[in-house]
């Protein structure tokens, strides 16, 4: 919906806009959906002129069809698959995070969501030499943990520092701040962040539910509208700038005692791929174990409900043990 203003198209002059306003036609949508003949009489303009204005406005606001072949060309040239750095997760995600899409990690407290996010950020900035935007809404971002992860990759301090510099962190704690940030990123902030170092390839939001869930269920139900806003801006940003969006979500317990990702049914349509992270040993919640399992619960590429186990220590493995651990992981997979 766009408000009618003079000079928007030839023939739409100040006087006409005023007349239309008097006839309660304020926006393009109002004009396009009203009866032309009646309107021409009411505003005393020629039917022909009004019809011409309508045609121009429609042309200005329409979308254009793209052929599948062109789309495929573009897909091949622009889509990248970013490895998460962890082989078992990559297998579940059909080799990694796809740019242009939203991928979601959901899981209970301490299931490793943030750790996976850190790992992905480190992998993209260190191995792929690209920038990452990390939006922290839970205060959980710990730079020293990232450094630990980097130390297992390289002993060169300069390389570590460079990699850390390519990770841009925003710390925002309410939904309006998140929206402001996402809109400004979409409106040019992404290109700015790319200056110096590779282009931004991933936007990580850890977590979306932290800022949205305080609003859901209140009256009037504003939370729902804001949630869809967040989803919309994330989606268009991912598509238009070819970045991979990775978000985390809480788990909630339904009436029947089953766990399910938070934010309800409307949100479940938003991410293209959803992973559920859990502790392997569910019975002993407090046992110090770094083993986690990931289950694919939504995907348009792979069979759903594939499960893989991974070890959070993977990101802090020392070099000599990495091969043996990898072997162990492959065994558990098969």
């Amino acid at each position: 919906m766009v408000v009618l203003r003079e000079g928007m198209c030839p023939g739409l002059e100040e006087g006409l806009v005023r007349d239309l306003r008097a006839a309660d036609i304020k926006t393009v949508e109002d004009l396009v959906s009203s009866d032309m003949e009646e309107l021409a009489q009411k505003c005393s303009v020629s039917y022909k002129a009004l019809f011409a204005i309508r045609r121009v406005l429609l042309a200005q606001h329409t979308a254009f069809p793209v052929s599948g072949a062109d789309l495929y060309e573009e897909l091949l040239s622009s889509t990248a698959i970013l490895s998460t750095g962890n082989p078992s997760l990559d297998k579940l995600l059909d080799s990694g995070l796809y740019t242009g899409e939203i991928t979601e990690l959901s899981g209970g407290p301490g299931s490793g969501k943030s750790q996976v996010c850190f790992g992905v950020a480190v992998h993209i900035s260190f191995h792929l030499k690209q920038s990452v935007i990390f939006i922290d809404t839970t205060g959980g971002f710990t730079a020293s943990r990232l450094l630990q992860m980097l130390q297992t990759e390289t002993r060169n301090t300069e390389e570590q520092m460079e990699a850390l510099q390519r990770i841009h962190v925003f710390r925002l704690f309410d939904v309006y701040a998140l929206l402001d940030c996402l809109y400004s990123l979409r409106g040019g902030g992404l290109q700015q962040a790319s200056v110096g170092g590779g282009s931004v390839k991933a936007v990580i939001v850890d977590s979306v539910s932290a800022v949205i869930s305080p609003l859901l269920g209140g009256k009037p139900n504003e939370g729902m509208s804001l949630m869809i806003q967040v989803a919309g801006v994330l989606k268009t940003m991912a598509k238009d700038f070819n970045v991979a969006a990775l978000v985390t979500n809480y788990l909630t317990r339904s009436g029947g005692g089953e766990v399910q990702p938070g934010l309800g049914v409307s949100w479940s349509h938003i991410p293209r791929t959803r992973l559920l992270l859990e502790r392997v040993d569910k019975a002993a919640v407090f046992s110090p174990s770094s083993l986690r399992s990931a289950t694919l619960i939504k995907s348009s590429r792979q069979r759903c409900h594939i499960r893989a186990e991974f070890d959070l220590k993977w990101w802090s493995r020392s070099e000599d043990t990495s091969s043996s651990r990898k072997r162990k992981l492959e065994e558990t997979d098969s």
């Binding site: 950020a121 730079a143 390519r166 990770i167 841009h168 402001d180 809109y183």
Partner: peptide, 13 residues
């Protein structure tokens, strides 16, 4: 509404 600066992870460290 188009503001908010980021900090690099290095600075946070």
């Amino acid at each position: 509404g188009l503001g908010g600066a980021s900090i690099s992870a290095l600075e946070l460290l």
